[in-house]
């Protein structure tokens, strides 16, 4: 199988790698780029554990070929922290509310929640539920995840309002 030269930007860092045409973006991220934070729960688009942001949109990395991401900007869980010493407000809230148990769903859910809050900082309960409908969590019953997203949204909105005032 011939390999294709792939250039992508992951979490702000330019990366280049050789990938086979059949490689999924998920496998390329995990194996070629060594970014194992993104998880494989099903490999067929049903669980959301592999959710990453490609050019601003959340997608299942298992349902996309690596070569299809040519030139794309990708954000994975490893890029969610604003800097190495600071957690994203969502991560803070996940800690506080116990929104992560086994944690296998957490990278995908955090990425999905970021997309949701970036677009809509104060989502209703219905909007949160709808936003997570492609992400399976089998440990938490989702209640703590909903709480954490609401908390993070409120804090992010407040911080934004403050920085506008300042």
């Amino acid at each position: 199988m011939n390999k294709i030269h792939l250039e992508i930007t992951v979490n702000g860092e330019a990366r280049s790698m050789m990938v086979e045409g059949h490689r999924s973006l998920l496998d390329a991220l995990r194996e070629e780029a060594g970014l194992t934070g993104t998880k494989k729960g099903c490999d067929v688009g049903d669980c959301g554990a592999c959710t990453v942001i490609v050019d601003g949109r959340p997608v299942n990395a298992c349902l996309m070929l690596a070569v299809e991401a040519q030139g794309a900007e990708i954000l994975t869980i490893e890029g969610l922290q604003p800097d190495p010493d600071t957690l994203h407000p969502l991560q803070e809230a996940f800690m506080e509310h116990g929104a992560s148990q086994c944690g296998f769903c957490s990278p995908g859910i955090l990425i999905m929640a970021k997309c949701l809050l970036d677009r809509n900082p104060l989502p209703s309960d219905e909007e949160i539920r709808f936003g997570l409908s492609g992400n399976i969590c089998r440990c938490t019953g989702y209640t703590k995840i909903f709480d954490a997203i609401r908390t993070a949204g409120r804090r992010m909105a407040a911080a934004r309002a403050q920085s506008v005032e300042a």
Partner: peptide
């Protein structure tokens, strides 16, 4: 008290290693 779970920080940053993450 609901103290911060030590293992959770690794899980939410993507650094926690599960068996499948080892190479």
């Amino acid at each position: 008290k609901s103290v911060k779970r030590q293992d959770v920080i690794e899980k939410i940053t993507g650094e926690g290693r599960y068996t499948g993450d080892y190479h």
